[in-house]
Design a protein around this nucleic acid. Structure first.
Length: 398
DNA sequence: TGTCCACTGGAAGGGAGGGCTT
DNA sequence: AAGCCCTCCCTTCCAGTGGACA
């Protein structure tokens, strides 16, 4: 019985040849439509080879525009090149969503550079000195990539001390690459951090449907068996992803899921039908991921909005859409909060939540204008209310 | 035209919690 | 360990905005 399951798994035909090639962590050898960015970043970092400290780089652009993958690609090529020429270039990649404080960042750098030491529980000053010692001793040029840098608490301190290291070093250097998809983040930095981090700024534009198609074709060749994906399926994935503001990560995720769906059906090839089905799954994945990281009050607010939308409350007259005024939503939110035994936040803070959710793209907010009494905003849910309720109700009620 | 209404969003400040210094 | 400071989350207060209605 169990052997049957294992046997089936072993002999099962799959449309995939190398499924990992569609994972968000995969770095391909070829990055179409990013040649300019690759060149620019390479040029900026190149002085490191002749022992000069390159400018710090700050990269920003929307999700899925290739920021991380281009950075990893260039850094990898650079360190490989340097290794051939016996130049001590080293790079540390840090995701600040995981390593989100100054000390965690220092521990991460320390343990990459000195894997034999254990830095847990050590003071940041101690780790800092250890890192500098290592750089000095081997004339090392260190590149530190801080991905999702907007998630780093105490950012200015971290940036300042890492950059200051250059003044204390006679040999070697530290260069920073900051990556963020939060476009307003830059403006919130204090002037000192700004001038340090933004010595060189790069913006990654979103991909259009045509470029997404090319990217997907390239990647499909690696990931799938020959002819296992219909061209129409790829075009459809590209079209959907272009609608998602040109998000390549979404495109790859969609293609991956479409392959899974095809495998589950035991199909020979991935078709448009599989993409349609995958789109629903991916949308659920995204909702789930986005919602589960939201603060509880925002979850309650979303649930209230989903319920109102579901029941068709609010104002009709925008086609089949239902839009809800912020005052009505606040009342619904406050009632729901009390039902759940939580204290609702004030109206002022509720407005902050609304802006937050709008920024994430979960809801859309428009000025009400004519036909509405007073100055209010209309709020619309961008996802299916049914799915939101399915995710949130057990989470909040249970 | 003025008043009311239904909000909006800035400013200031409270208080809890975490990290750093002493 | 104690004190301090900083950040985050939140409240209170309020001037401002824009449409409805008399």
């Amino acid at each position: 019985m169990i052997e049957e399951i294992f046997n089936e798994a072993l002999t099962r035909k799959s449309v995939f040849k190398n499924r990992d090639a569609l994972s968000p962590h995969y770095v391909p050898d070829n990055l179409p439509y990013r040649e300019k960015q690759i060149q620019e970043l390479s040029k900026t970092l190149a002085p490191i080879l002749s022992g000069r400290k390159p400018e710090n780089v700050f990269i920003y652009g929307k999700t899925g525009t290739g920021k991380t993958v281009v950075t990893k690609f260039v850094v990898k090529k650079l360190t490989e090149f340097a290794a051939q020429k016996n130049i001590p270039v080293d790079a540390v990649y840090i995701n600040c969503r995981i390593h989100n404080t100054r000390s965690k960042v220092f521990i991460k750098i320390g343990s990459e550079l000195l894997p034999e030491e254990n830095f847990m529980g050590m003071s940041t000053a101690y780790i800092y000195e250890k890192i500098l010692g290592k750089i000095r001793e081997s004339d090392k040029r260190l590149i530190i990539v801080l991905d999702e840098i907007d998630k780093l608490k105490g950012l200015s301190d971290a940036v300042y001390s890492l950059n200051r290291a250059n003044d204390e070093l006679e040999n070697g250097s530290i260069s920073l690459i900051g990556i963020s998809n939060n476009l307003t983040f830059k403006d919130r930095l204090d002037p000192r951090t700004k001038s340090t981090l933004l010595q060189h700024e790069m913006i990654f534009p979103p991909y259009n449907a045509e470029s997404l198609r090319r990217i997907l074709e390239d990647r499909a060749k690696i990931a799938f068996r020959d002819g296992a994906v219909e061209p129409g399926a790829i075009a459809l994935v590209a079209a959907y992803a272009a609608k998602q503001s040109g998000d390549a990560r979404y495109a790859l995720q969609l293609l991956l899921r479409a392959g899974d769906v095809a495998d589950e059906e035991g199909a020979e090839r991935v078709t448009e039908k599989h993409v349609e089905r995958a789109k629903e799954i991916v949308e659920e994945d995204i909702i789930l991921e986005m919602i589960s990281t939201l603060p509880e009050n925002e979850q309650i607010l979303l649930l209230a909005l989903a319920k109102m939308t579901q029941e068709g409350q609010g104002i009709r007259g925008f086609g089949t859409e239902t839009r809800i005024t912020s005052g009505d939503l606040y009342n619904a939110y406050a009632r729901l909060s009390e039902t759940l035994g939580r204290d609702p936040v004030s109206e002022r803070w509720f407005r902050e939540y609304i802006s937050d959710l709008a920024m994430y793209g979960i809801i859309t907010v428009t000025q009400a204008g004519k036909g509405f009494k007073g100055n209010t905003r209309l709020i619309r849910l961008n996802f299916s209310p049914r799915k939101i309720i399915d995710v949130l109700e057990p989470r909040l009620m249970g």
